[in-house]
Design a protein around this nucleic acid. Structure first.
Lengths: 252, 252
DNA sequence: CGTCCACTTGAAACCTATCAACTATGGTGG
DNA sequence: CCACCATAGTTGATAGGTTTCAAGTGGACG
């Protein structure tokens, strides 16, 4: 795990552009003028670079920082008493991984990288200070949190009430939509999908074996092709219909 | 559905005490001084009284108001395309039913009463104004929203990864803990539970028939007794162990 | 070339849903 | 007061989706 020291007074332009994609997202949630944007930028402390499968935030660590994913894919998980792992969220570039880090109580959760990741750390104290000084900043984080409730509510429905095929299809639709707004390389229904079948299983609440079979069904029905870390959507219409996908719960 | 006109300038003390239980909860999330507490109180518009099974907020209605449950039980639901109903949250007295009402986008959901309910309506515009004037108010709502993400994340785990018995036991533990902080009449493990077996099914992602059988198992194992709208917890230890219940995700 | 890991396949067991009765309960009207 | 009805809860039999176990394939990489 590498930490690039990165004095925010004169950070390189490259880094700032990436970080600004998060600032933009905040501003989309609740409009931020240039001063409050700068307050957010001021909370930036450094960039973490972690290899794939490395921990970004371990379950018991404190919460002096918030984490914004700049590059790569990551996930939040919790470990069940029987040793299983539940992946409770997937994070894409531009996502804030831990809104709940703003909360006083420490939460039992871990965040880990799926691919090589670059993660911006924000000082929790600085963010709280920015929130005190600029009410709009608080509002923006509030909207981020509300968005998260909407996504989680949707997943409740999926995990509790819909079939394995619907869940899988829905996940693909959701990832596709979320990537559209952040990634540049969404060409012709073909996106990166750096999840193994057993990781998919831990997202969808299925066994790895069953994930394999569902994937085969979807492929056989010519809706998607999944291989080598890529997802190719062959028939968006039917995939979305199967998933009963309504993208309205996704921000933006 | 009755609406008690209730001019907030001189509202009766009875009402204010009930509404203050919500203000207290907000303040617990982020401390509010007396001026900001008054700003919240000022957003209060009126009290709705609805009979059991009545709609409090229909799926397509606008969102000029936020709803705080003063008395009774309510639930949020969404209807699945195949006609099934998913109960995505249960609300107890003191709960804010729709944080996401603060959000700009209209959300597809309904809120309905399980019992006779008294619901305070807050003017969305007034709340937003209070948030602009008093940053602490925004922070309080932010923490409420974060709490909601924690609860929803827990239910994701339950619905996706745990068995029917564990879900049921967990629901009971959660309700018990949540009631402890709001209701007065929690005597000896015996609480109100105004949910039919088929409503339980819609909460837990099970069929009504299976709810019945799980309930029998729990009763047979002498952990709980459920009848006539009441839940009696006979053996908290074993129930919590079965549920793998860790109350840390519940506010307060 | 061997090893490891992800993926694949088959068979059996398990959990939960569905369907179809049937019972218990409470309320209503005659 | 009783007959009737609607609703909630109960039970049994069967079917289906998903898990588990066990074994085997395949490619990637030292």
């Amino acid at each position: 795990m590498l930490v690039d020291a990165f004095p925010h007074s004169d950070g390189g332009a490259f880094m700032n552009i990436e970080f600004d994609s998060f600032v933009d997202r905040l501003s989309a949630a609740a409009f931020l003028d240039e001063t409050s944007r700068n307050a957010i930028r001021g909370s930036f402390s450094d960039v973490l670079t972690v290899g794939s499968n490395a921990e970004i935030l371990s379950q018991d660590s404190g919460q002096a920082s918030l984490h914004v994913l700049l590059e790569g894919w990551a996930y939040r998980y919790d470990l069940l008493p029987d040793g299983k792992r539940h992946i409770s969220a997937l994070y894409l570039p531009g996502d804030l991984c831990d809104v709940d880090g703003l909360h006083a109580r420490p939460i039992d959760r871990g965040i880990a990288a799926l691919t090589v990741c670059r993660v911006a750390r924000l000082s929790r104290a600085a963010v709280l200070a920015a929130m005190d000084e600029f009410p709009q900043v608080t509002k923006a984080f509030l909207h981020l949190a509300i968005n998260e409730t909407l996504v989680l509510a949707r997943w409740n429905r999926l995990l509790g009430f819909q079939t394995a095929h619907e869940r899988m299809a829905h996940l693909f639709c959701e990832l596709f939509c979320r990537l559209k707004v952040t990634a540049e390389t969404v060409r012709e229904g073909d996106i990166e999908l750096p999840l193994s079948q057993s990781e998919l299983a831990d997202v969808l609440g299925l066994s790895a074996v069953h994930v394999n079979r569902v994937l085969q069904d979807l492929r056989h029905d010519k809706m998607v092709r999944v291989a080598k870390g890529r997802l190719h959507v062959l028939d968006w219409e039917r995939l979305a219909a199967l998933a009963r996908f309504e993208p309205d719960y996704i921000p933006r």
